[in-house]
Write a protein that binds this DNA or RNA. Structure first.
Lengths: 145, 145
DNA sequence: TAAATAAAAGATGTTTTTGTCCTTTATTGC
DNA sequence: GCAATAAAGGACAAAAACATCTTTTATTTA
């Protein structure tokens, strides 16, 4: 509902990569997609975007793969969501009205604005690294079913 | 982001119908779609759903059209959203994990749960009639652009 | 330098969502 | 009863999202 599939896979992939940060090898797309149970080629495309945007690093060739440094792990989740969904996605009118504003609000404007603020603060208040840490601690999971 | 187009058009149509509640005639699909600037045939389909679910009333034939009674106007917005998106739409895991639960939470679970609660209370705390009233008062609008 | 490897890139295919069109059914007013 | 009207319903079409497959490019290591 809140995130597209693209965004879901992107978050799961990034969090998994971050969770392997202490490993001494880079993580291949095959391992990533097995672990997060996501479609391989589609997820590869999404990782291309994240790599292009600098949210994830990659290396081609033998022993290549994906990885993240400390700085990348410290990026808030909102950076990833905006990279994937576009920056305006989080500020659109709930009823799809371009004209919706403080001056000409839609009938849901004020309530929706509060929700948007909540969403933004959720996404700003957590980093990829934070999420990875939960995974490592075993206090959260990426299991599908 | 939060609502599908189907849902957006459905809300706008229902709110417009409700806002015409005091009129002595029923509202035709043509008028509705002009006023809410929504695609005519698509919106007609959505109104079929809302009518089937009893959220809106309709009458065929000469001088027929759509209308809502007091009881329908008092339905919370969440009833409409659930009719259109399905009842589970509002309770799915943010990262798309079926297994996500209190016992096996995804790394976003707790924060996302809070958002979902906010969304649910927004949708429960406002009725179609409330939204229509804002329109009538001129304190809010359904203008696209 | 050559072979192997793994991501990047581009083309293509499928499914879902969004949107249109045409026929049928119910209702009204004459 | 008949013509007109308006929603209901079904078939179809376009666009977007989701997903796959193949080729290219960069890198490593033997």
């Amino acid at each position: 509902m809140l995130f597209s599939k693209t965004c879901e896979y992107g978050i799961r992939a990034a969090v998994y990569i971050a969770s392997q940060h202490d490993k001494d090898y880079k993580i291949g797309i095959t391992e990533i997609c097995e672990k997060i149970e996501a479609p391989r080629h589609f997820t590869a495309k999404i990782l291309q975007i994240l790599t292009r945007e600098g949210l994830v690093s990659s290396q081609k060739g033998v022993n290549g793969g994906f990885f993240m440094d400390e700085e990348q792990m410290n990026r808030p989740l909102i950076a990833l969501v905006e990279a994937v969904e576009g920056t305006e996605a989080l500020s659109r009118c709930g009823l799809g009205l371009r004209a919706c504003s403080e001056k000409e609000p839609c009938p849901l404007h004020n309530k929706y604005k509060a929700i948007r603020t909540n969403i933004a603060s959720m996404l700003t208040g957590i980093t990829i690294g934070d999420m990875a840490k939960k995974l490592q601690k075993g206090s959260s999971f990426l299991k599908i079913a």
